[in-house]
Design a protein around this nucleic acid. Structure first.
Lengths: 418, 418
DNA sequence: TGCCTTCCTTCACCCGCGAAATAAAGCCCC
DNA sequence: GGGGCTTTATTTCGCGGGTGAAGGAAGGCA
């Protein structure tokens, strides 16, 4: 009986169409319109969705009762009664986002528009399930403690992002390079402890959801987010919905083989992964090696020893025109460009969003990427894709994780996972 | 006004939920069950779909009236009234499939189960729109002519597959290496001429649809078909639905860059595409070069000059243990393996179907693929994917194209493309 | 002030689903 | 072989949701 539960969930019966589905569908269709295109009038929603005016009115009333949609004012008259404008109320709820990484945990409280209300940064010591849960709960409490009771009641849930292979349906880690909790019921333990919805996903995916909800992908149905920092990751939106693959492992862009025979060893233990060729840590590794090998560069004066070199040094040097730094970025950009070319050939996306850590290095990558794309994409498909750059900071990750909450609450049933 | 039409189509209003959608949805849910899992009883359908028995009965009645579903007999009693078994009637309609290639056109009439009723093979001379349409119509007439009037009335439509970038929504070729009809309304002209539905798609996509409808992907929601022959292609099924990308160009697997700097020139003009490294024609090219360079091999006795060498020679030689042939296949397999590893890292599919032209060479590829996968896929994701081999012949392509027809007629409204 | 336009709400009606009652078909056991 | 019991299928009815028409509300314009 109980044993049956999990397989049953994986092959759950398909959603059948009954009146509830209809209402769900239409009501989210309306909410979506208001969120993406608001302020907007009922009549306009009806015209654009194809729903009847009466249906729109009723559905809007539902969202108003729930406090998620408000009337914000009236538009100019177009010869008759002035349209009443409706707006998504981004202040109607709060969400907590947590980004976990090797030895750090950054948490935020945001409103539904992603505006940060409070931040908590602290050390994180990867441990067993209980130790990990305990640290997350502590951070959560520190974050919620200053809130008054009313605000605390408005918190809708918690989203957590981390690097690794996550099964978001089960709420477990399948494999992660820094957190040895494979298979442990991390999400469910947390739900028990904090008494509100908790969502878990890969960090690149959380960033992607944020871009879809509030960022550069709001009106794009097929796009890919590539994140570039110490590692490289990707999140894939297909038909407006995050694509997880068969078991949550989709989007491991950083580990696609690019130079599997003669490339450098990657953190994952294999050779020539894109991440080992194009990430900022790979650039740093090559810069240190070049300095140690005696390559001339202004970097030599910036640090006492190659080991002290940081990304900031490299960016400064590149800004100042240093050949070595620029060359390394360009080479990394070409490698990344090859990866992006593969994405474009395979996915033919409408848009690719490049999220760069701090984003300052991104412009040095960009040239290499664009040139490579033109060379390596078939049929001129690269002209069909828009490249967009977005800056990523420590907090951005946490804010992204927080958007798992509204994504779950307010997304259409067709986009809600299986 | 008219100018507006195309953009309006691209951003068509989303499908709203009304009672018709419900019926459509449930009715296809039921049909799908019967097609995939039939023979099956009404009660079992109800249990597995979650629909009420009354709904199932009514919906089944609809399909019976349409002649698509029939009662086939009764099952053993399980202690009470014997269940009536329902079966999808694959003979209720016919479909035409056409595969166009450089100088050849293969057409078939099949029933809905893909059984070939008639075949037509002829030369194809790529020309302008009217010339092309004319040749297709001729083949179609040759195929339909022997049919009696009743059978002719049962033909539901025509599906066409060809290599290149196709926009299936508009029914146009965007770019193809052998047919200079970019942007021409090929599908719509054909619809006018033949007076029945015509569908156009990339050939790898048609093969993929066939695998989903009748082949190895019937019960798999996320899989990728890779086709290997003179070229290399792929079709992607996500959530049970063929993925086309933003403008129909998705799945250009043969042209992902693998050795963009030092690889051989590809037919598309760029360097180091997968297709230039791992297709059968690339193996042939390398074999000829090796013979010309004096590499010892049993192949030398098989042909007078390297130019006479064919794939069949290579397969025979490999079967006989020839080092050169085996080595070339293995190397190509490793290259293909790198490509497949990229697919697995990015898509985390449940299954990958390898369609090999004639399939006889596939076993020589396979070893290289499997070994490479184990090396180049992160987190052991390769253990999550099933590799399946399928044989591909000239007719298989045409049969695949034909499945565009039932896919369109009988697929759920949620899977019917945007 | 009166009429028109535009925006929104209300009400009657249609349609499909689910639940329950009913019918049909077959097993089992005395 | 006849009365239960079980399983399968159909029919009936009420509910919820969407649509469309009619009506109310708000504002422009002469």
């Amino acid at each position: 009986m109980t044993d049956d539960l999990v397989p049953r969930l994986r092959h759950a019966p398909p959603r059948t169409g009954d009146s509830r589905l209809i209402k769900d569908l239409n009501s989210h269709l309306v909410l979506d319109k208001i969120q993406r295109e608001g302020p907007i009038s009922r009549t306009q929603i009806a015209a654009e969705t194809g729903l009847s005016l009466s249906a729109v009115s009723k559905l809007v009333a539902g969202w108003q009762r729930a406090g998620i949609v408000h009337e914000i004012g009236k538009e100019e008259s177009r010869g008759g009664r002035r349209p009443v404008l409706l707006e998504f109320d981004y202040h109607s709820g709060l969400a907590v986002g947590i980004k976990l990484s090797v030895n750090r945990m950054v948490s935020v409280i945001v409103d539904l528009e992603g505006h940060v209300q409070a931040t908590d940064k602290r050390a994180f010591r990867p441990g067993n399930l209980e130790e990990t849960v305990e640290q997350i709960v502590e951070a959560l409490e520190a974050l919620l403690e200053p809130l008054n009771a009313a605000d605390r009641g408005r918190v809708l849930g918690v989203g957590i992002g981390l690097a690794g292979w996550v099964d978001p349906n089960r709420g477990t880690l399948v494999r992660s390079e820094f957190l040895p909790l494979s298979g442990a019921p991390l999400r469910d333990r947390l739900i028990e402890r904090v008494g509100m919805p908790v969502h878990l996903d890969n960090d690149a995916n959380t960033f992607t959801v944020a871009q879809r909800w509030l960022g550069e992908g709001q009106s794009v149905e097929n796009f890919i987010c590539v994140t570039i920092g110490n590692g490289i990751g990707a999140g894939i939106i297909i038909d407006g919905k995050l694509y997880h693959g068969a078991s949550g492992g989709a989007g491991e862009f950083g580990h696609i083989p690019i130079r599997p025979h003669d490339g450098p060893i990657c953190g994952c233990g294999r050779r020539g992964c894109l991440e080992a060729l194009a990430s900022e840590s790979s650039i740093l590794r090559d810069a240190r090696a070049a300095l140690a090998a005696g390559t001339p560069s202004s970097l030599r004066e910036a640090v006492a020893s190659p080991a002290d070199l940081t990304i900031e040094h490299l960016i400064e040097a590149a800004d100042a025109g240093d050949e070595l730094a620029r060359g390394l970025y360009q080479e990394a950009g070409r490698m990344l460009g090859q990866g992006v070319a593969i994405l474009v050939n395979l996915f033919n996306p409408e848009e690719i969003i490049l999220g760069g850590e701090g984003s300052r290095g991104l412009k040095y990558y960009l040239e290499g990427i664009e040139r490579t794309l033109a060379d390596q994409v078939v049929y001129g498909l690269q002209d069909e894709v828009r490249l967009v750059c977005v800056s990523l900071g420590e907090e951005t990750w946490a804010v992204g994780a927080a958007t798992l909450v509204p994504k779950d609450v307010y997304s259409s049933p067709l986009h809600r996972g299986r």
